[in-house]
Structures are given as structure tokens and as C-alpha cells.
Amino acid sequence: MDVSIIVLTWEDFDRTNGCVRSLPEGAEVVVVDNGSAAEIGAALRAMCDETGAKYVRSETNLGYAKGMNLGVRHSTRSRVILSNNDIVVRPGAIEELMARLDDPKVGAAFPRVLDATGKDQTAAGRFLTVGAGLGHATGLSVLFPRLRIVSTPEHGDWLSGPFVAIRRQTLDEIGGVDESSFFYSEDLRLCWAVRGLGLRLAYVPEAVVTHEDDASAKRKWAVEEISRRQTREFIRASRELAGWRGGIACSAYTVGVLLRAAVGGGSARRAVAKGAIEGMTAR
């Protein structure tokens, strides 16, 4: 099977073990240990020796993008899958994704993502345009779905990427995973870059994986902190990628976030508002 699967992990043997053992025979599996404690690293190394996966260790936590790029540098196949460690792959999923990459117009392929209960959690969205930003600020997005930043996977400008397949040539052309962020919005940046090559994204519902959302983040941060960080990186990425239009769009969107926080209150909305403000100034 002509695919290298990069599994990025941090301080988590059990989920990584389950992920690796769900992967099909014939795939090249590279486990990147992103600075785990020594005893967890030893267990990961032993598991890799048993399963035939490559074990690559960083002594510090490099973050998502740098960790994935490290794994890619240790891989050899012409197609690459970037995988969170809290993924379990259903039979046939890899083959379905690889078949979709046979289309030269497809730049990246995404599976259907289920949670542990079987509920569909495939996430997708639209790039933050001036129209979407103003729609969010004025409330018009409630009336006009095309002004919303969320989308169905079939029509998304970007899809969430806990498990994404891409040709190595495409990954090389976009310069690897964008390392501008330590964690969050890497999938948005990747989809922007792939589309910038004139390629499209493929949602492949026949390819199914299960995912424990934010498993690593939840061990370190409260839900509000996760929301703050996600919003900050979404705003920062949208602002940086789209130039002056992105600046206008993000400003309008942030106004909407602040108004909702002022009217609705609550710790979650305050966290999102704080993240939006940070995203407008972060470098």
C-alpha cells in the first residue's frame, strides 16, 4: 500500500496503541512522540517494535505542525495521511481515501468522522469573507445560510483534519504543514494552501474513522480555554491568509463575537470573545 501514515502523539500510549493497531497492513506507519515522558516513550517504542511502525521521538513538544512535518521527513511513500493519535480507522477507509487521490484534481481527501457513540462529528466551514464577517456582526447569517462560517462537509471551503490524506507532491508544493501555529487551525491553513494550487478537497463519507475530539487538549485545558485558543487561531489564520480583505472580515466577525458576549454573557462566550481579540493582534 503506497501510503505513509503519520500518527502524532503526546503523553498518550493507550489511544496511540489503539490507533496504530487499527491501521491496515502494508501501510508505512510513523509514530511521532512529541516529547512524552520517558516511560510513555518507552512503551510507545516497544509498541512500534511489535507492530512494525517507525518510532520517531522529539525531546520537546513541537506542536502539531512541526511534529507532523518531522514525521513526514521520516516517511517514504508517495501518499501521506496525517493522523491524530485518538483516531480508530474502520476497515476499508484508507483504500477509499487513496482511490479519491487517484483523481489529479483532488488535493486532499477527508473521511467521515464519528465520535465514540457513532454520532457524525465531521466538521467543515467556509473561509471568513467580508460578507460572512458582516453577516455574523449584524445577525444576517441567521437568515442567510451562505453567510455562515459553518458548512456541510460536501460544500466546505475547509474540513477539520484529524485524519487527512494528501499526495506527497502536493504537500511538498505547499511547503508542508504550515508551522505558523503551535496548535489549532492547521487544517484551515492546509486547505487554503491546497485550494491555492487550484485543487479541490474531497469529502469521502465511505471512509469512516472514529475520533475522540480534543483528547490531548482536554487533558491540559478546560473547555473555555480550548474555545479561546481555537478562536484565536481561526481569526489569526483568516487574517493572515486573506490580506486586507481578511482584516476587514475578521474585524467584522470580532464585533459580532463581542456583541454576543455582551448580550449573552457566560464563560464560553467570554472565552471566545477573548480569543477573537487576541487573534486580531497575534503574530
Results as ranks from 00 to 15, higher is better:
R236Y: 11
G139A: 04
G176S: 02
A242H: 11
N85C: 14
P91K: 06
A65I: 05
S83M: 06
V7G: 04
D115Q: 08
F163C: 04
W244N: 12
A249C: 10
V89M: 10
R148Q: 14
R232P: 00
G67R: 04
V88Y: 03
G246Q: 02
R112K: 13
Q169P: 00
L101V: 08
A132R: 12
E186M: 02
V30H: 08
G67C: 07
A42P: 00
I149K: 02
S36L: 08
V223H: 12
L62T: 02
V208M: 01
A65K: 05
G243I: 12
A27C: 13
M68K: 15
W244F: 13
A165Y: 01
T231E: 07
V177L: 12
R270M: 02
V263I: 13
G265Q: 00
E278V: 01
E50T: 14
T51L: 08
T152Y: 09
R79W: 07
V150W: 14
R236W: 13
S160W: 10
V177R: 08
G275V: 02
G156T: 04
S216G: 14
R269G: 01
G135M: 07
T170W: 04
I81C: 06
V150F: 13
I174E: 04
G198Y: 07
R73K: 15
R189G: 00
C19S: 13
R239A: 10
V209K: 03
A65R: 04
A249G: 09
L134Y: 11
S151G: 10
K54T: 12
V20S: 06
T152W: 08
P91E: 12
A276N: 04
I40P: 05
A271I: 07
G246D: 03
S181K: 11
S58T: 05
V80M: 12
H136S: 03
D120M: 05
I5R: 07
D187C: 05
F163H: 11
G125P: 04
A43S: 15
V32P: 08
D115M: 05
D120R: 06
S78K: 07
A93S: 14
E186L: 02
Q169R: 13
I6F: 05
V106T: 10
G265M: 00
L197Y: 04
L134Q: 01
A193W: 00
A249Y: 09
E173W: 05
A193E: 09
T152C: 03
L82N: 08
R73N: 09
W221F: 11
V194P: 02
K220E: 14
G63T: 07
E212M: 12
